[in-house]
């Protein structure tokens, strides 16, 4: 299995490690629920260095990114990021990602499970269209996500100055005297940052963040946090046959762009389906694949530590409104649930 540079730190913290798409990653350190609360109430750090970082540079970089992605990268100012997706020629979503325009390149951060697929897709398209671009995989970069209401306070401590950043912008800076790139983004529904840091500095930064009061958080709580925030995940909500419109992300598809791969299919898709939330009356967990009777299936389900209830996401083309009663089938039992709007929890950020 592959390991991130922080692997020995996870071992030292006695993390419970699992095989996550070929990476040996912490699922939790002390417990999913405790870590979840730490992020909602204070601050937590996640090693997300297993995600793939790919930089696109060269004279055709913008043109290449425009053809590849559904959003409009030409609208990006330098140091600005956007949520986007890559579709194949049949309009199927291959992955979702954040793209950032840096001074000399476009930086893609892709799901680790899709890294090889996206990287090859880039190489194929470069070759077929003879784009003058350099596709560089940044293996030496680590990503630490710092998330939670105290994230800003902790960053200020480490940067020795107040961090003034808009959401979906990056800034180069120094944390504990190491050169890093700080992105004001996250995947938890909390305020927070994702920090790009080199191999040689990552351990020092990780330890510094812990000392400053952030709790180490595993992939278990990363999942419960993103489900509460109603954020889609590739392989769960983002699956074959599901479009950005179905997920409530129609706004990222810029049909006024002259061309992007999959456009001819995506622009003709029916826009009937929507992603909804579900809160169960019992604490048994409606996991992915569980039937929502008459409506479809659960795409993600978990126990919500914030609500102290079991929750799920599901996609349906049927008419449902907030407050409707639905039933999920778990182990031959029908359990009542109430339809809710997303996100499950609203935070002031």
């Amino acid at each position: 299995m592959k390991q991130t540079t922080l692997y020995p730190e996870h071992k030292a913290l006695k993390a419970k490690l699992v095989d996550f798409n070929g990476w040996e990653m912490p699922i939790y350190y002390k417990g999913i629920i405790e870590e979840h609360h730490a992020v909602r109430e204070s601050a937590g750090i996640f090693d997300v260095s297993h995600m793939g970082v790919i930089d696109i540079s060269g004279p055709h970089a913008l043109e290449f990114v425009q053809i590849l992605t559904v959003n409009d990268a030409s609208a990006l100012k330098i140091n600005q990021s956007q949520y986007t997706m890559i579709a194949d020629t049949e309009g199927k979503i291959m992955d979702d990602m954040i793209v950032t325009r840096l001074a000399d390149c476009f930086r893609f951060v892709v799901n680790c499970s899709n890294f090889e697929k996206i990287h090859s897709w880039m190489l194929i398209n470069k070759k077929e269209n003879d784009f003058k671009v350099t596709i560089e995989v940044k293996d030496e970069l680590n990503i630490i996500a710092l998330q939670g209401p105290k994230a800003k306070e902790i960053m200020t401590k480490l940067a020795k100055e107040e961090l003034v950043m808009s959401s979906f912008y990056v800034t180069a800076g120094k944390l504990l005297d190491s050169q890093v790139l700080i992105s004001h983004t996250g995947y938890t529904g909390e305020d927070g940052y994702e920090i790009f840091v080199n191999d040689k500095d990552v351990v020092k930064l990780w330890r510094g963040l812990l000392e400053a009061g952030a709790a180490p958080i595993g992939l278990g709580a990363r999942d419960t946090l993103r489900i509460e925030a109603g954020l889609p995940l590739y392989g769960h909500e983002i699956i074959t046959g599901i479009s950005p419109y179905d997920l409530g992300y129609g706004w990222i598809v810029k049909l006024n762009k002259p061309k992007f791969i999959g456009k001819n299919v995506i622009e003709n898709l029916p826009q009937k389906r929507r992603l909804y939330g579900l809160v169960l009356k019992e604490k048994t967990i409606p996991r992915q694949g569980v039937e929502v009777k008459g409506y479809g299936t659960v795409t993600s389900g978990t126990f919500s530590p914030t609500l102290n209830k079991s929750i799920a996401l599901f996609i349906t083309d049927k008419e449902v409104v907030k407050g409707d009663t639905v039933f999920v089938k778990i182990r031959d039992k029908e359990i009542e649930g109430e339809v809710t709007k997303l996100p499950f929890i609203k935070k002031g950020c």
Binding site: I27, E34, K283, I285
Partner: peptide, 8 residues
């Protein structure tokens, strides 16, 4: 198992 949330 980790954090147990439901028992039948």
């Amino acid at each position: 198992l980790g954090d147990i949330v439901f028992v039948e």
